[in-house]
């Protein structure tokens, strides 16, 4: 049975309804990280998540990824309750989480191995994504031998290589210099347009959010709630988009929302 790629069989790819999350560490006090968060994301949508530090952005990604149990509310992926983590939901962790005992190549190949691809195919695909993130020549390096930005790109390659339908990205370009960041943004957009992925993209950079996303979700200070959802609706084909007045206005609009919340944290 084949599905036509243009036509999704479900209306919502990710449906977060009224989700709260409380951390109960063994020591220290409990923390209400998320409170009644609802968020509906359509197939092939690109959503950016903005909010002050500690407002629960990572927590929300972990819940959607299936890493943390959904205790209050519900999260559905393609109409079914979110299950154990798997390669359908790729995640790029904020702190990379590369296997330190594996080389860059072995890290990127890991998911492909688990998919059961033949060895030459694994190698070919891993190399493709290593080249894509600009780590050619560092295939045999261990993470401890890489800079922060290089580690981040290796982690990016590892996640992209398994070609997940849903991409959960936790400040994936946070450690990159402006130049590399801009290159990676372009690559991500190209991949997204070509492969029709659904993306949740956490960032602290309002410009980046407006540049990449179709909708920007602004979260409130802890406990995290959805403060506003701002549709972007800009013409991404325009090569000078960043310099247009419309782009600037959108950035300003979102900036003021974010700033309100950041001031609360202080």
């Amino acid at each position: 049975m084949s599905m036509t790629s243009g036509d999704a069989p479900f209306k919502l790819q990710i449906d977060v309804r009224d989700v709260s999350h409380t951390y109960r560490p063994a020591r220290g006090h409990t923390v209400l990280a998320l409170e009644s968060v609802s968020l509906q994301i359509a197939p092939r949508e690109f959503v950016a998540l903005l909010g002050p530090s500690g407002c629960g952005k990572s927590t929300l990604l972990y819940l959607v990824g299936g890493f943390l149990p959904v205790e209050t509310g519900a999260i559905e992926i393609e109409g079914a309750p979110v299950g154990a983590p798997g390669p359908d939901r790729g995640i790029v962790f904020q702190h990379f989480a590369l296997f330190p005992w594996k080389t860059v190549r072995a890290n990127v190949r890991y998911g492909l191995e688990k998919m059961g691809l033949a060895r030459p195919e694994q190698e070919r695909r891993a190399q493709g994504y290593i080249d894509l993130v600009g780590l050619k020549g560092f295939e045999e390096s261990y993470p401890s031998q890489l800079s922060g930005g290089m580690k981040q790109r290796a982690a990016l390659a590892r996640t992209l290589a398994v070609e997940p339908k849903i991409l959960l990205m936790d400040e994936p370009f946070g450690a990159l210099d402006a130049q590399t960041r801009s290159l990676m943004q372009t690559e991500l957009l190209a991949i997204w347009q070509k492969t029709q992925k659904t993306v949740i993209f956490v960032t602290h950079d309002v410009q980046e959010a407006v540049l990449l996303a179709q909708r920007v979700v602004v979260m409130s200070a802890r406990p995290g709630r959805v403060k506003a959802v701002v549709p972007v609706g800009l013409d991404r084909a325009d090569p000078h988009l960043v310099r247009t007045a419309a782009f600037g206005a959108k950035v300003d609009e979102i900036w003021s929302l974010v700033r309100e919340e950041e001031l609360k944290v202080r």
């Binding site: 798997g86 790729g90 962790f93 989480a97 296997f99 688990k114 398994v162």
Partner: peptide, 24 residues
């Protein structure tokens, strides 16, 4: 924790994680 999660999301089962992440 994040390494275990990484392995899981890249397609490793629970026992596989034991060998691939916990042992090293």
């Amino acid at each position: 924790q994040h390494l275990i999660w990484s392995a899981r999301s890249l397609g490793a089962g629970r026992l596989r994680v034991l060998w691939d992440v916990v042992v090293p």
